[in-house]
């Protein structure tokens, strides 16, 4: 919005627009307060059924984009883990 519009229409439409965008984000954040925490626990639970690893060596990151968000899971697994596990048939 340029200065001319601001003078002509007043600043209330700017306030309204800023609030609508801000609150849309804050409401999403509130409704999933610990989505990452839940994902982390469940992913770790599944993997630990099959592979032994250090819980500290796990990194889970989420990037929220405009249309697509990505979930990045980085788990450091010690070498030779496959031998300790039964082969899936």
């Amino acid at each position: 919005m340029n200065l001319f519009n601001l003078i002509r229409r007043g600043s209330a439409p700017v306030a309204r627009e800023r609030l609508q965008i801000l609150l849309a984000h804050e409401r999403i954040a509130r409704s999933q307060p610990d989505l990452l925490g839940v994902l982390r626990e469940e992913i770790l639970a599944v993997i630990s059924r099959h592979v032994a690893f250090e819980p500290d060596k796990v990194q889970i990151k989420m990037d929220r984009g405009k249309s697509v968000s990505t979930l990045e899971v980085d788990i450091e697994i010690p070498n030779g883990f496959g031998a300790a596990l039964p082969r899936a048939s």
């Binding site: 229409r9 007043g10 600043s11 209330a12 439409p13 306030a15 309204r16 609030l19 609508q20 609150l23």
Partner: peptide, 16 residues
Amino acid sequence: RATRGEMLSIDDVLEI
């Protein structure tokens, strides 16, 4: 001020 667009109107606040 709301009429002049300088303050959020009642409808704005209710909608948000």
